[in-house]
Amino acid sequence: MIPLPEPPRAEDGPSSAGQRAPELMEIYRTHVDYVWRIARSLGIPADAAEDVTQEVFLCVHNRLHTFRPGGSMRAWLFGITRNLVLHDKRSYARRERHLAGLPEPQETAREPDATVRVRQAAALMQSFLDELDLDKRLVFQMTEIEEMTADEIAEALAIPLGTVYSRLRAARARLERFRLRLHARGERRHV
């Protein structure tokens, strides 16, 4: 495995806190969900997100020696994912148009109430994220869901720190209005 000159920062993964450099499988296990969600946020459909995620980590495997010591691993992964998605987006969009005509699969298995509630909450979050533009969506997702710091977000998106905060404020304000809208809809249903 190709060693890194210096290990990434401690918040990038559990192995980076030690003295040895992170290996590919450690990076993969730590950040696979993050890469998956970033690919989904950038417009990759669910059935193609696995291919994109695997391609991202193969690229990491090939280019791990170029990782800048002291940099954010998640910012670096975001750059790789965005480049791959932009490169493959046309092919994915073309395939998505072909699959759009097919009927949606019906859920036949009966789910517990807790699972149904989680699934419905995830769907609500997905619908809220779809209302945001891509800039605010990425900042909100990196902050609230991926729990990245503002510095990491600024490095990943190559934007000033103040822009990160302003986009985050706007996204949170949109989320508050979204929640109020959901609450009002529930009140009308009770009446």
Partner: peptide, 12 residues
Amino acid sequence: ELVAAYRDRERP
């Protein structure tokens, strides 16, 4: 709750 649900569902 929304964030946790999204994080739990939106993953491979």
